[in-house]
Design a protein around this nucleic acid. Structure first.
Lengths: 363, 363
DNA sequence: GCAAAGAATGTAAACGTTTACAGTGTTTTT
DNA sequence: AAAAACACTGTAAACGTTTACATTCTTTGC
């Protein structure tokens, strides 16, 4: 048993009895400095701003780094610079595959810029958001990207701004019009409108709509687009064709069951997302309703499984990866003090796309 | 313009021109101490070990905390204690929904214990693993949970141990028999065997198998189970019934196309995961092969969409959430120096379950 | 060759905690 | 009532960086 100074915790030792001790091997900038015969300031500079140091010295330092196996203690650096180089990504439900590609886009840009992402899974419970907001307050993260509609920070209603004590916030997909926050999304109203128009072109008039969560601005926009489209088709009263859902497979199935009770069936169903469309699809098939022969089905999001349904689902695609990537890019801009769309507090709108597969037919 | 000490970076200010400055509001333990009329040590103790401090004093401190809006700078704490309270979760592909529930299980336990998870998406490229391993070396994370088969650390081949300089590692789902690492998984060989036995009970003899990535130990086990089961059915030569895949929907579809070229079709297909089963299913239906009437289909994993296929997929379920939760629990044990299954370097084996739906029929 | 300017390096302070140890009350024991 | 034991609080050092400022070395212009 050897002597270990009390204030050093045995970090990586699995057993107290093990003699391996990470901290014994731990080499700091001081060691490198000694080895290279320079001051610690020079080492720091050689590593962080190589051109501020003479090539000769730089080489000495680099050699010492290599020899000693030094690796920067980023904890110390973060502490000193007050920058963590990590960003919380707040996801309503990690299980929802729709978010995967967005996260991937974020992650990619983050990694390319030396940032990491802290995953915040709300498990669909807004109460969980607060905990992740607090992470930022504790400097655990430099900023937060919000994929859902729940903003974990208090905001100043009258000024439509975040309280200045909160870190940068970027919203992806969703937005909140009570407050000016930079974000990235598609034009959901227009997208839904395009969907209805397409169904209209195929001769559909009675088009049912399976809505998402009512409190989601994004859903309100899609609903608005649906109504607008229906109005264009000359149908102002749509209340009997409207079904509630919550984006889950189950809720889509449930909506389909309710829908099949209608005295006069619609000729098409437009679901506010693919999961609900697929849920509905299953019920329809179970009840012997053929898609698209008896009933057409239009989804939203183009998740991976949409192409593997039977029939493959016609749907409206969002550029998910780009949404994620751009969100992170904006976050980086804000953090660097560059004014991306950051300062403006406006959403960047990316194009959507109608993906034609086989779940919609002419009437 | 007010005076700002040079060494304080304007952290949260979106514009240089803005007067909001987070650091102006920044209150440290020192401020709380002054406000409460005690030393900073007492504040620290009142917060960390409340029972080590007189109730009277504690109240004073707590009041001061509240009044000042103090929140501990976890960056400073992490630096001081050399503990980050975060764990990297290395995922082969975040887009693969199979991993979602595992991550969720991990996340849940982590959060309940004051830990956060750093998401590491390998995007199916092992080269990306290294970067996340390095995070640990830099003290960015206290440990790493590996959901795939790629271990981002060098290990000592002869001693079957990790190099002691690496932080704790736990493997979920996969394992690596070249090295002793704690982990959580199911008995994949037995599970596959059970699958084949079930198909045998239904009268199937010619059972095709769509394999996963060859270099995955988990897949090797499943394959072994399949072979064992086939041997039990009296079929030793299975090479013509074996098809390669990589866990993706596409590879399942491709395998099905190859399979349909066989002179004598099998009566059942067993896929090493649900995604491939669903990919295969689509091809079968396109070619007019009815499932399960003409051909039975058995999957593996029980992902969410398995229940929403047509027909709903019979499959073998893994307790994904528990696998994740237990992995994190083991990690916590190791980090706390408690000897969970941590020290042993053995895998905990959780039970699997056959989920009967409608994709398998009697011959 | 010398002064001035500029570049490279060193010195030392600071970031906000935690914690060993010392010191100061407070209670218990004798 | 004094001594001993104990509980609480304060002092100060330490963690490993970054960086303003001071100092030294090198180059440039004359």
């Amino acid at each position: 048993m050897f002597f270990v100074k009390h204030y050093k915790a045995g970090r990586f030792s699995y057993h107290a009895s093990l003699t391996y001790r990470q901290e014994e091997l731990m080499v700091s900038i001081k060691d490198v400095a000694r080895l290279a015969g320079v001051s610690i300031a020079t080492v720091s500079r050689a590593l962080a701003e190589p051109d501020k140091v003479r090539p000769n010295t730089r080489d000495k330092v680099l050699a010492a780094v290599k020899q000693s196996g030094y690796v920067t203690n980023s904890l110390a650096r973060s502490f000193r610079t007050n920058r963590n180089h990590s960003v919380v990504v707040l996801v309503p439900d990690i299980t929802n595959s729709f978010f995967s590609n967005i996260i991937q886009g974020i992650e990619e840009v983050a990694r390319a810029n030396g940032y990491r992402i802290l995953l915040g899974d709300m498990q669909n419970d807004p109460a969980n958001a607060r905990a992740y907001g607090d992470l930022c307050a504790q400097r655990q993260a430099d900023g937060l990207i919000c994929l859902g509609r729940t903003i974990p920070f208090a905001y100043n209603r009258s000024r439509k701004t975040l309280d200045p004590k909160w870190p940068p916030l970027v919203m992806a997909c969703e937005y909140d019009d009570r407050i000016a926050i930079p974000g990235v999304r598609i034009d959901n109203e227009r997208a839904a409108l395009d969907g209805v128009r397409y169904l209209g072109e195929q001769g559909h008039r009675r088009i049912a709509y399976i809505n998402g969560p009512q409190d989601s601005p994004l859903c309100r926009d899609r609903l608005k687009g649906y109504r607008k489209g229906m109005a264009e088709l000359g149908l102002r009263k749509t209340s009997d064709l409207l079904f509630g859902g919550d984006f889950s497979l189950d809720s889509g199935a449930q909506a389909a069951r309710a829908l099949l009770q209608l005295k006069s069936l619609p000729t098409a169903i437009f679901a506010a997302n693919d999961a609900m469309a697929i849920g509905a699809l299953q019920v329809l098939k179970q009840r012997g309703v053929r898609v698209p022969d008896d009933l057409s089905l239009l989804g939203f999001d183009d998740i991976k499984f949409a192409a593997y349904c039977d029939p493959p689902l016609t749907t409206i695609a969002q550029p998910r990866r780009q949404i994620g990537a751009l969100s992170m890019q904006i976050m980086l801009d804000i953090l660097a003090g560059r004014d991306g769309s950051g300062g403006s507090g406006e959403s960047r709108v990316l194009p959507h796309e109608l993906v034609l597969r086989e779940s919609v037919a002419r009437v």
